[in-house]
Amino acid sequence: MRSCLWLLLCFVGCASNRPPVARAAVLPAVELTRVNGGGESLKAALGGSVAVIDLWATWCTACEQQRPKLERLHEAYFARGLHVIGLDVGETPSVLNAYLAAHRTSYPIYLDPDFRVADALGEKRLPTLLVIDREGRIIRRSPALDAQTLATIKALLAPAP
């Protein structure tokens, strides 16, 4: 029994070596990896537009349930300047490509196999939606595309009075 307790304490001790990530307030200067290879900076990918970054993974059922909403959002607001991108977190290109072959998306998908971008954004939960304004500030973090997140997006897209 004593050995079990030591094992448990060891487990906690080892785990605490990696501290929680700090949350970014603005878009960090990080490079995104395209599905077909090659890189592009996050800021360039968003092009100074109002944007939604969807952090997701193929195994994440809640992410999958959200995807139809994001498709409809992209379809409805792309013409008004909204950029939706997906960031697949913690998975290899082969896993992602196999998934995308069966599940086509209308908005661009990028890869973050080693959590580098997610850590720079200060996010550790899936799914997470980040709403970005035209200045590159992270205005809202949400686990779902809900009414308030949609209201925030619409307010950012609205022309200045």
Binding site: R72, A144, D146, A147, L150, A151, K154, A155
Partner: peptide, 25 residues
């Protein structure tokens, strides 16, 4: 978030290319 949604969604009044309910399902 759902609670926040009920108070904020009505605050935006410009024309929508698609209704909120349609997007959110």
């Amino acid at each position: 978030l759902l609670w926040c949604a009920s108070s904020c969604v009505a605050a935006v009044g410009h024309a929508d290319p698609a209704s909120d309910a349609a997007i959110l399902g």
